[in-house]
Amino acid sequence: MSKERIRVGVIGAGANTTSRHIPGLQAIASVEIVSVANRTPASGQRVAQAFNIPKVAGHWSEIIDDPEIDAVVIGTWPYMHARLSIAALEAGKHVMCEARMARDAAEAHAMLAVAQAHPHLVAQIVPSPFTLRVDKTVQRLLAEGYLGDLLAIEIRAGGQFLDKDAPLHWRNDFDLSGFNTMTMGIWYEALMRWVGEAKAVTAMGKTYVKMRRGDLGLLKAVRIPEHIDVIADMACGAQMHLQVSNVAGLLGAPEAYLFGSQGTLRFCDNKLYGGQRGDKQLAEIDIPAQEQGGWRVEEEFVNAIRGRETITHTSFEDGVKYMEFTEAALRSAAEGRTILLPL
Rank of each mutant, 00 (worst) to 15 (best):
I69V: 14
G263N: 03
L147Q: 01
A102D: 03
F179D: 00
V47H: 00
M234R: 04
A248I: 08
P119F: 08
V8Q: 02
G237H: 10
K220Y: 11
Q124P: 04
D104R: 00
L251H: 12
L168V: 07
P254E: 04
E4M: 13
I153G: 01
Q276H: 05
S315G: 08
M80T: 07
G275T: 05
L121M: 07
E291Q: 15
A106L: 09
V73F: 05
R223F: 15
A283C: 15
Y273Q: 05
A115H: 01
T202G: 08
A152N: 13
G178A: 06
Q276G: 12
G278R: 07
L191M: 14
E300A: 05
A99Y: 04
A238T: 03
G274P: 04
T18G: 06
A13H: 03
M240E: 04
L218H: 15
L343V: 12
T326Y: 01
E255Q: 13
R7S: 06
H241I: 10
S30L: 13
R140A: 10
F179H: 10
H169W: 15
L282I: 08
A248E: 11
L84P: 02
G92T: 07
L251Y: 12
Q139G: 06
L330M: 13
A304C: 08
L340K: 13
G12P: 03
C268M: 14
G205M: 01
L250T: 13
I305T: 01
I86M: 05
N172T: 08
A87W: 02
S128N: 09
D66F: 07
N246F: 09
R20M: 14
A123H: 00
R39D: 06
I311C: 03
T310F: 12
I339V: 13
K280G: 11
V201L: 06
E189G: 05
G178I: 01
T310W: 11
M204F: 15
D286P: 02
E154N: 12
I224T: 10
R46K: 15
P78Y: 03
D165M: 10
I285S: 01
R212W: 07
A113S: 14
A166Q: 13
T338S: 05
H81F: 03
L84N: 01
E62M: 05
D286S: 11
V114R: 03
P342D: 07
A50T: 10
L258H: 03
V95L: 04
S43W: 04
V8C: 00
A203S: 07
R39S: 09
G24S: 08
R7L: 07
L121D: 00
R212Q: 11
Q26G: 02
H120M: 11
R171S: 14
P129N: 13
A190S: 15
R103P: 00
Q276N: 11
R296I: 05
V34L: 10
E98H: 09
